[in-house]
Design a protein around this nucleic acid. Structure first.
Lengths: 233, 233
DNA sequence: AGTCATATTATGTCTGCACAAATTAACCTG
DNA sequence: CAGGTTAATTTGTGCAGACATAATATGACT
């Protein structure tokens, strides 16, 4: 057997990855234990552990105590989506960022929003609508419901100077959240906001966040046709 | 100061997270070094390192040698998308899975596909079209271009028995790939395949994969209105 | 045979130490 | 003072050893 010492966790990971992708270890098969691999590579068990932990996080192997590690049959690989502040997303595409607040009011939360946030139907929330512009053209349309009680000092903020999006990221911490991605036909208000035809296909990102169980905000971001999110595997 | 010992990396992470979300350490601020925190928590530096590494991976802090670690100003949090085999996605929703191969041919790759894969325009590739069904109703429409040379033994496979999607996951390993998510209007063939009106908004997932630089496949998956991808933050 | 307690075993984590790598701060020289 | 070299500091990683935890295998007992 090869007696070449691999003594970096990245090196071990690369070698294990090679054996998996080249089917030296087949899907479903149990692979050698940490101790054995450590002996083979001439490194410490902790090093092998680090490498295998990364492979497990990437969804390539499954690890169970006492049972050992095995190659996953369906490696449902994970793609990491980065969710930046919209201003940075716009600027990252080389466009000049501006935004415009369309509407700000206090109103009863729609049932769907109340359900997503897990609050009493009929609760009063702050409703904000805004449009984000890239080089003056609509980039995304924002429709947000905000639990003002959870973010005390926001009544004094001028949302023409800083976007709600960005202000919240900086001032309203959250501990849990979920994101839903979908496609939809643009509603009349979204179409107007984005300057497109009603019914045109839009990319929709819906995000809901809580802080230690307390609902913070539910936002629907609508992107016009042509927008796409890309990530590497 | 509190002299409570925290000696698990998860505990340290939780405490650091608390100090960040409660703005004890403000965005942009430098936080104490590993050694100092290790003394404060009464644990080893490696334990603090593990906790801080996780926070850095989650996008909450930025770490640089010699300069120390600081709280990110815009914590562009990362959401992890799991990309399973479609059969498992369908079955995970409690639906019975079936699929149907619509077309299989060898043809010249369209320019867009050749560009995505990084091959000569005009190269001949295998073109496959199929529909995935959940409880008999269209769940997703698949349009795939495959570099048959990279997957030698596929001509003998009966894609009515196993879906191309699943067969490739099991038999065509890849080392790199990218995914693009977008919304589009259903084209005529997609509309027919999904049983919806042409022009209806569809959710599009485009995936391209390579194996050590060699192009493997480019696939466009189209999901009918109502489909959504959800992930926790 | 079936059931429950116990031993075994692979992974998970912590510790204390050491050195490597990266980057900034300090210093020295012209 | 400018510019470049050197030192100091912080994170990154490796190692050996130990114990913790989870899950399976074994064996005793009914």
């Amino acid at each position: 057997m090869n007696e070449i010492a691999i003594n970096s966790w990245a090196g071990v990971r690369a070698e294990l990855l090679r054996r998996i992708t080249e089917r030296i270890w087949k899907p479903g098969e149990t692979i050698p234990g940490e101790e054995q691999l450590a002996r083979e590579f001439g490194c410490a068990r902790a090093t092998v552990n680090r490498a295998m932990r990364e492979l497990a996080e990437a969804g390539l192997i499954e690890r169970r105590r006492r049972a050992g590690s095995r190659v996953r049959v369906s490696p449902d690989r994970r793609a990491v989506l980065r969710i930046p502040v919209i201003r940075l997303e716009v600027e990252g595409r080389g466009l000049g960022y501006r935004h415009r607040l369309i509407e700000q009011e206090t109103a009863m939360a729609p049932l769907a929003v109340a359900a997503r946030l897990g609050i009493e139907p009929g609760s009063r929330l702050t409703h904000l609508r805004a449009v984000h512009l890239g080089d003056g053209r609509p980039f995304a349309c924002e429709d947000r419901w905000l639990n003002a009680a959870a973010v005390p000092d926001f009544s004094q903020v001028d949302f023409n100077a800083i976007s709600i999006n960005e202000w919240l990221v900086l001032n309203a911490p959250f501990t849990e959240g979920d994101i839903t991605l979908s496609a939809a036909a643009a509603g009349p208000r979204e179409a107007e906001c984005l300057g497109i035809a009603a019914g045109a296909p839009v990319f929709v990102v819906e995000r809901t966040t809580w802080n230690r169980g307390e609902p913070i905000t539910a936002v629907r971001l609508t992107y016009p046709p042509g927008y796409s999110m890309t990530t590497r595997l």
